[in-house]
Simulated assay, not measured.
Amino acid sequence: MKFRWTWCLPLIASVTLAACGTTEGGGGASKPGPSGPAGDAASLTAYHWKLQQAFTPAGNDDQTWFLSSSQAPIVLDFADQRVLVKNLCNVMSSGYSVEGQRINLQRAMSTLRACNDNQLMMLEQKVARILPTAKQWNVQLGVGTEQPRLTLQFIDGTRWQFNGQPTAQTQYGSAPERMFLEVGPERKACSAGAGRHQCLQVREIRYGDNGVKTYTGQWENFYSEIEGYKHEAGVSNVLRINRYKRQNVPADASAYAYVLDMVVSSTLENKRK
């Protein structure tokens, strides 16, 4: 599936807010926070931030930012001076900058995907309206097994709290190598370590700077898994992958970790020539 980006209409105007206030404003009954030190701006990019709690301007718990338990909560990813908002109908992308504890968001773009879930679409529109009004941020790092916490406060007093999960680069401690893999529609039996395994069938693809395909490799067994990718039988996919060099690798494990960055295209098997 190929995505197109367009300007998200609710976010036409650029917003630069420098209002003063405390990140923990309001009287909401927050869960106990981590016991670690405050994080700097780099800590924003070091984690995937999953929404855990939300509070109204009056400080009351606000469940309207969450849908059913089967729907994944909102996730924010900060990278390359952009923030991605995930787990809505579409993925939103907005430029951001920070100055101390203030955060400024530019106008956002969004993918254009059909959404048959009216509640999810309404939530997406609600997020689109409030996102550019974020005015302050605060990260509190955890100690030991504690998860870090990100708090975002908006100009109307609404407050969101997120728990952080390390990004792949934080987890593996190295910058990734970008690559493209085509994944075939069916797994095949293969020998992996001490037993039999059902391997993905992959081949490497390379593109020139102009986006034209310059190389297509041979099909081969893929003995690892791709983090973030769920294979669906009968569907082939071209994936953009971030490959990380692993540290202290066991003798029977792959020297690399493969993390899904984006599904570039998908093709049903019965439509393949």
Rank of each mutant, 00 (worst) to 15 (best):
V91T: 14
E24T: 14
G193S: 02
V85N: 04
V235N: 04
T22E: 15
S14M: 10
A233R: 09
T22F: 12
A257L: 03
S94P: 05
E146N: 11
Y172T: 01
E177V: 14
A134N: 10
D62H: 04
D80W: 05
Q81G: 00
G211Y: 00
A175I: 00
P34C: 10
E24D: 15
N118Q: 14
R272M: 13
S266R: 12
I130G: 01
T216F: 08
A233P: 01
Y47R: 02
G21P: 14
E220K: 02
L84A: 14
W49R: 05
H48T: 01
H197A: 11
Q52I: 08
P166S: 02
G208T: 02
M92I: 04
V85K: 04
G144K: 09
W160H: 11
I103H: 12
E186N: 04
A54R: 11
G100F: 03
E220T: 01
E220A: 06
Q140Y: 10
N116W: 09
D80G: 05
N163S: 14
R196A: 09
A134M: 07
F222M: 02
S43I: 03
R246C: 11
K245D: 01
G26C: 12
E177R: 14
V264G: 08
Y258F: 11
T22H: 12
L67Y: 07
D252K: 02
P148C: 02
A41N: 10
